[in-house]
Simulated assay, not measured.
Amino acid sequence: MGNFKEDIALTEAFVFDVDGVMTDGSIMPLPGGDFLRRYNAKDGYALAYAVRQGYRVCVITGGHGATLERRLQMLGVKDFYMDCMDKIAVMRSYFEREGIDPAHVIYMGDDIPDLECMRMVGIPVCPADAASEVIEAARYVSEFKGGRGAVRDIIEQVLRARGDWARSSIGVTPASMDPQR
């Protein structure tokens, strides 16, 4: 573990939690069992941009619902695991399948269930409003809160460190609107 800026330039994959990271943590239960969540458009743009630039993005969450699944599909995220109660097992399987070194993975979480995952990777990060235990475990704490730009913050930093940020905006639209699909 070296300098943070040097380490993020070696990032092989991003792994994100959802509630409290990609959202502010608020959910509104719907009668059919799904939930409404509020997402940040700039976080979504950065996620879609990273995917289009060829970065590996994985989402592992205890959350579930058709609207969440649709959101991830629209952003082009292919590796996502919902209603997950054993994030470590999923991460191990994902890293093995993809040939990813956990030392070069960024994991962004915000609460106690994320601590074990954060300890498994080389670059644990969190939003500004994460639980105090998570902030203590993080190598980097975004100045932004969950659902308010924290995801964009870390993605932009990595892509800037690698010279990939704002390289091209062509094709960065929701996957559902991609004419090549």
Rank of each mutant, 00 (worst) to 15 (best):
V77N: 01
A137Q: 15
H104N: 15
F80Q: 03
Q157H: 13
G149C: 09
H64L: 03
A50I: 09
S132N: 08
T61G: 10
V51D: 04
V125K: 01
P124S: 01
Q53P: 05
D79T: 02
P127V: 05
P124M: 04
R160L: 14
F144Q: 14
D111F: 09
C117S: 13
R119C: 10
Y94S: 07
C126K: 11
E116L: 13
A161N: 05
T67M: 09
F95Q: 00
M74F: 01
R97A: 14
L115S: 04
L68M: 13
G109D: 07
M108F: 04
Q53H: 15
V151E: 08
R71C: 01
I112V: 15
L159F: 12
I154C: 12
W165F: 10
I155N: 06
E143D: 14
D43I: 06
R148M: 12
E69T: 08
D101M: 00
R92I: 01
S168C: 12
E96K: 13
M108T: 03
Y55R: 15
T67E: 00
A130M: 07
L159C: 11
V151R: 11
G99M: 05
V51T: 06
A130W: 04
R162W: 11
W165S: 11
Y107W: 09
H64C: 01
M120G: 00
P124L: 07
G149I: 06
F95C: 00
T61C: 06
L75N: 01
P113N: 02
I60V: 15
A131W: 07
E98I: 03
R52P: 02
G63V: 05
I106W: 01
R119L: 08
D86A: 04
D83R: 10
A50M: 02
A103S: 12
V141W: 04
A89Q: 12
G44P: 08
D79E: 08
R167H: 14
G62K: 11
I60Q: 02
Y55W: 12
R148N: 12
A103P: 00
H104M: 02
G146Q: 12
R139H: 07
E116C: 01
I154K: 13
E156V: 15
G99D: 06
R148I: 00
E98A: 13
V51M: 02
Y45P: 03
I155G: 03
K78S: 11
Q73M: 10
T67K: 11
C117A: 11
Y81G: 06
D86F: 01
E133Y: 07
I112K: 08
V134N: 05
K87A: 03
I106T: 04
D111Y: 08
F80P: 04
E98N: 10
R56N: 11
D101K: 07
R119Y: 09
A138I: 08
R92K: 15
M85I: 00
A66K: 14
D43N: 10
D164S: 14
L47Q: 12
E143F: 05
A103R: 15
I135W: 00
V105R: 05
I123T: 07
D43A: 10
D114T: 03
